[in-house]
Simulated scan of single mutants.
Amino acid sequence: MFNQVWLSQLKKHRAIAVIRAPKMVLGEQMALAVASGGMRLIEITWNGDRAPELISQLRAELPDCLIGTGTLFNVQQLQDAIACGAQFLFSPHTDPAMIQAAVAKNIPIIPGALTPTEIITAWHYGASCVKVFPVQSLGGTNYIKSLQAPLGHIPLIPTGGVTLKNAKDFLQVGAVAVGLSGELFPPESVLQENWTSITQQAKTLIRRLQ
């Protein structure tokens, strides 16, 4: 059941904001900025500053958003992420033990994979969706399109090369949603704490995906 709810949220919102914050206070502002722009799926990377604390705080501050985490490397990190309130879990790789641990807790788990074998393996072990990463290295939208005939039953979320300009293209060739990081959070905007600019980036993305 939890997978159906997760998939319905993905199909509704179509984009995940990926926040890798050097300081927790910046991570909070980055999340608030994209939420103000209308984004509802926010991933806080586990290797950012004070990620558990930030996830817990954002759960309280942004009740209309789903706050998840990513860059999880092992079962211990995954369990810690669930304990602090993460509502979905991304990893850069496919680890059967991590997938099984998340499934046991009814938390959506989206492992990273690149080749058809890796994607099918992740799905076989119970992944909620599969993160195709880094998608640009294998041809971007053309790669996602080429996977649809044999693997169209597996919901794919490309990351690593998704931009404001090509995000809709990924959806049109079959991706269930996309993940964006640097495109939503240009380093100079974060450095200057130009949150209005980041909110505008989020609004632009949402408009283009409609």
Rank of each mutant, 00 (worst) to 15 (best):
G160Y: 07
L164K: 04
Q172V: 01
A202V: 05
A167Q: 06
T163I: 04
E183H: 14
K165S: 12
T204A: 13
V190E: 07
W195V: 13
A167C: 06
K165C: 01
K165N: 13
A202W: 12
F185S: 08
S189L: 15
T199C: 14
A202C: 09
D169E: 15
T196F: 02
V173A: 05
L180D: 09
E193C: 12
K165Q: 15
G182T: 13
G179R: 06
K203F: 01
A175C: 04
Q200A: 14
S197R: 10
K203Y: 02
T163D: 08
L180V: 04
I198T: 05
A177R: 10
K165V: 12
Q172N: 15
N166K: 09
G161C: 11
V176G: 02
S181M: 01
G174I: 06
N194C: 10
L180M: 14
K203D: 03
Q201I: 01
Q192M: 13
L164G: 09
L184W: 07
S189E: 14
K168N: 14
L191T: 13
G179D: 07
K168W: 00
S181N: 12
F185K: 07
G182Q: 03
I198R: 03
Q201E: 10
V173P: 07
Q192D: 13
N166L: 04
L164V: 06
K165R: 11
A175H: 05
A175V: 01
Q201K: 15
T159D: 08
G160W: 03
F170H: 13
N166W: 03
K203A: 15
G160N: 11
P186L: 13
F170W: 08
N166P: 14
D169S: 12
P158W: 00
S189K: 15
A167P: 10
N166G: 11
Q200S: 15
A175D: 03
T196C: 04
Q172A: 13
Q201S: 02
L164F: 05
V178P: 05
F170C: 11
L205F: 12
E193T: 12
W195H: 11
T159A: 14
T159F: 06
N166H: 10
S189Q: 15
P158V: 02
T159Y: 04
E188G: 00
L205G: 04
G179Q: 05
A175Q: 03
I198Q: 10
L205K: 10
L180K: 06
A202H: 09
P187R: 14
I198W: 11
G174F: 11
N194L: 03
T163W: 06
Q192Y: 03
E183I: 00
L184N: 05
T199V: 02
N194Q: 09
T159G: 09
E188W: 12
L171R: 06
T204G: 05
S189F: 15
T204H: 12
V190L: 14
K203M: 13
K165P: 01
F185G: 05
Q201W: 08
W195G: 14
S181I: 00
V176S: 13
S197P: 00
P186S: 02
N166M: 06
